[in-house]
Write a protein that binds this DNA or RNA. Structure first.
Lengths: 258, 258
DNA sequence: ACCTTATGTCAACGGCGTTGACCTGTTAAG
DNA sequence: CTTAACAGGTCAACGCCGTTGACATAAGGT
């Protein structure tokens, strides 16, 4: 796994940290924090090895003593975001309310660091914070009474839905100012003005569209997912031994991740 | 808007197409098609200006006579993808089956060209294909009997969830080979080996996790969304005049009165 | 047949991630 | 307290990338 001449040594084995030319003492945490700061202050394009080195007051290539490559660094950033989100979550015992709260927190956390979320929300890190999140969510579902196959399916749908919407909305938020204004204008300038004879359904609902499209669809989608999960749980507890709904069908295998 | 010394001339004004050194006659369509072929055959990393030039048999910088920059080219690619997806969709009259089919097509279309999907799925284009899609989906929902506010809310959740999952799964697929293999390995090497005393829920469901996490959660999430929508429709038609579920809460509302 | 000019070509710029070689302060062993 | 090993910071260089400005030339209206 880890080759002999690997530049990166595991954090636990680090002893001889010597200061850089500018006097800064590097660490994994300092690098991740600085990267998050760079992303927040100067956008997604600002995160380059050279600029990060500059921001740290160190030679850019010093990073390679802490992270195998930029992808490795990105995973560390993603995991830190997960950790920050989990740390503020207090489950209360009601599975549906707890998951709803957690989903909204994940979403909000991503939106507070849109650039980082865009780059990292689709990654599996396998790091501590992520593992803890998986364990916790699975626990909520299993304690609620979902059989294992259903618990896993619903866990997967819940997490990926949260991350997918987080990335989507973060990407919108991370757009350059001009592009974001232009997109907002499209609904007013284009959709709201379509004549009823050529586009009857848009024209009939234009008033609702203008209001609804301004905000994220995530809360609605989340509630719909939880509603369906509750229905599944009801079925399962009423007729024990019944195979749950949402069983993936054979034809859907083509959309599998390779 | 269009600056004077713009390299790109509008397609309508193109007259003097002269062949490249290798005899190929360039065009916007040829470039987009070649780019899609490159993406499909050689993966996400294959789409660079230089490689595209090579594949076309032209100097790489000739592209800048047709597209302002690579982002412009990517939007053209994305637009072509929307067109292809819509063109293959045949609604049959059953709202639930039709939406399910469309959702899976959007997802599959994005996955067949991940790079383009990742960069473009969160953009509102306001172009003809997109408008047609909005009109069609709203029509499906309204004809099914959803009141306008519910139709709009469900339309929004359906479309954004489809695009969000498309982008999420496309992003996974667009990863460099090494990173993708590494992610697959994480579930096997890390999650499947967690001891039951520290991570009981993961350990209990590891077998299901290994199977389920290999494929996209989108089909499950899509079915859950449609299940919840069906439940909403049932409530609405049974007790007419009842405000549907998933009503946006007061704190999210922005009063839009006619 | 000419002249404009659209369009293909070429060379070059600056930035990127990454590597291998080098150098030096920290630290643990004696 | 000394000293030798070596983790970790630095440096120079490689091969990519997108993009630009200058240049060459064939197409096509006149």
């Amino acid at each position: 796994m880890t080759s002999m001449n690997d530049r990166v040594v595991p954090p636990a084995a680090r002893r001889r940290r010597r200061p850089t030319k500018t006097g800064v003492v590097l660490s994994e945490e300092l690098i991740v924090e600085t990267a998050l700061r760079l992303l927040k202050e100067h956008g997604a394009d600002a995160l380059t090895v050279r600029r990060l080195g500059l921001a740290l007051g160190a030679d850019p290539t010093a990073l390679y003593r802490y992270f195998r490559d930029t992808d490795d660094l990105l995973l560390a950033i993603a995991d830190e975001l997960i950790g920050r989100t989990l740390r503020t979550w207090r489950p209360a015992g009601d599975w549906r309310a707890d998951l709803r709260d957690l989903g909204l927190r994940i979403h909000a956390g991503a939106l507070s660091h849109p650039q980082a979320a865009v780059l990292s929300s689709y990654r599996v890190t396998g790091r501590v914070h992520e593992i803890e999140a998986v364990e916790t969510i699975l626990g909520v579902l299993r304690r609620a009474g979902f059989p294992d196959p259903d618990a896993v399916r619903i866990y997967h749908a819940f997490v990926d839905q949260s991350l997918a919407f987080a990335a989507l909305d973060a990407a919108s938020l991370a757009l350059p100012r001009a592009a974001r204004d232009a997109e907002a204008g499209v609904w007013r300038a284009t959709y709201a003005r379509l004549p009823a004879d050529t586009h009857p359904h848009i024209a009939a609902t234009a008033r609702h569209l203008l209001v609804d499209m301004r905000r994220s669809a995530y809360p609605v989608a989340l509630d719909m997912l939880l509603t369906a999960a509750a229905a599944c749980l009801e079925e399962v507890t009423e007729h024990a031994g019944h195979a749950g709904p949402f069983q993936a069908r054979a034809e859907d295998q083509e959309s599998a991740r390779p």
